[in-house]
Design a protein around this nucleic acid. Structure first.
Lengths: 186, 186
DNA sequence: ACCTGAACACCGTTCAAGT
DNA sequence: ACCTGAACACCGTTCAAGT
């Protein structure tokens, strides 16, 4: 089930992208701590140490995963007309990203290295957008981001129950609408 | 450092309460996963298996911890005058409990058994209080509880930096005020 | 460069044995 | 009843060795 010992022939080595895909699948399927270096290695038909050449250690793996998942959140935001539309799009995408991979939020939050990278960009962008529509941009950034994270925890603990999961997603969309309706030109 | 083998003399056995106190201390001090059965046993001068007689397994330990920490949240709520004051007190206490032990939130959320017990009581009570002041009680319960959990994650990742921690706590108090000001008779 | 096997220092938990 | 030591099946990670 594992590979021969030496350097693999040209183009036969593992692709970093395939590792991340498998890791994400493992995270989504698994109860609690499904994503371990050893389980990931087994799934890829490889020795655990082999992973360290491609993704670094466990923290680096989670950081790479979070970058992949949250990359789309900020993309194309500037094409939208006004600040409020941009804010709504950014938060909607953030919620979507988070609700597609509920376990990722948990995993990221007990891996400070992984946490720092992503959310910094998102919160900075969000804060500067909020500054255009409210005198309290950092306060509202906290409220909105904390809400996203909290609701992602709720999704994580509703794993395995698709009906409850959809109900939660619907309520969270409503919650986002309510929060955003605080601002003028709603 | 460990104890003699047989049953300890009368009154010399470990007290369940002391175990929980030590566990909470370990959780608060530690980076990430500081609270392990083995570390807890070492701190108490005892073999890991000894703990299983008093607190059960790791999930049961976390459940006991959450019950101890969140027990005060609902206490004496009924002494307050109106629904809005009760809601504010309940949420303030919940935030306080959560911010005193930031790592506990994380630990609880990847231990479904521990999660179920506590928050059910709190959300039920909160929902019924909210029903008295808004036509959308479950929606607002989600918003407020998710916010509490999300901000607790923020606190957990600000561990070790007391200045940042106090700043966060202050902003979270403001955030709670803003959210509650949505309702009439503010 | 990229993979392996062996090893180290951890986990939670079970089980049988001691008093 | 309450504690122990030994053991099992896991972790992440390092290191030296192979090609």
């Amino acid at each position: 089930m594992t590979r021969p010992r030496g350097r693999p022939p040209q183009g036969q080595g593992m692709a970093r992208d395939d590792i991340l895909t498998a890791a994400l699948a493992l995270l989504d399927e698994g109860e609690g701590q499904g994503l371990t270096m050893r389980a990931l290695a087994t799934r890829l038909g490889v020795t655990p140490m082999s992973l360290y050449h491609h993704v670094g250690d466990h923290a680096a793996l989670l950081q790479a995963l979070s970058e992949r998942v949250y990359a789309q959140v900020l993309e194309g935001i500037d094409d939208l007309a006004d600040a409020k539309a941009r804010i709504r799009a950014l938060l909607t995408r953030y919620h979507q990203a988070v609700s597609r991979h509920p376990q990722l939020t948990m995993a990221i939050f007990d891996t400070p290295e992984a946490y720092a990278g992503i959310t910094c960009q998102i919160t900075q962008r969000l804060t500067s957008l909020l500054a255009q529509i409210t005198p309290e941009p950092t306060l509202w950034c906290d409220i909105l981001v904390d809400h996203a994270h909290g609701s992602s925890l709720a999704l994580a603990s509703a794993r395995g129950d698709p009906a409850q999961l959809r109900a939660l997603q619907h309520r969270q969309q409503q919650a986002l609408d309510v929060l955003l309706s605080q601002f003028p030109k709603g």
